[in-house]
Amino acid sequence: MTTVIMRTTARAIVPIILVVAISLFFEGHNLPGGGFIGGVLTVTAFAIIYMAFGLDFLERGILGRDVDPGKGPSRDRVVVAYRRLFAYGFAIAVGSGLVPLLFGRPFLTQTYESLEGVPIYGYLGIASALVFDFGVYCVVVGGLLTILSVVGAE
């Protein structure tokens, strides 16, 4: 799969996918989108990078680390990072559900804040659901990338 066509296409579409993923993530709480679908889309961008440039590209090409070829994939530092992302994302999601309890509201209660007169935007609504969505995003990205890189290497 690592042909010139594939690499050139990947260079062009990966940024677009990531931007779409981020926009889907940010509008998720009141439009179609959200942490899950944003996360899945982000993972597809990673999957294309893996397909076009190989499994070691992230570690060697982008992070500039030396990769020991004989190592099991589950011990790669980047895979450890994926796993940690999964755990932290889960902690963020659960933690965001617990915060309303401090204010005497039920578990997972959400609210929002409207900001008027923001430069350029004019109006900006900030929803607390974004924190929960961010947790979900991290869980999805971390979980799927762990599976993708470990199973992909096998």
């Binding site: 999964f86 755990a87 932290y88 889960f90 902690a91 659960v94 559900g97 617990l98």
Partner: peptide, 9 residues
């Protein structure tokens, strides 16, 4: 839930 997160971390 909290126990699961804790044991995961």
């Amino acid at each position: 839930l909290v126990t699961a997160v804790g044991s995961l971390l």
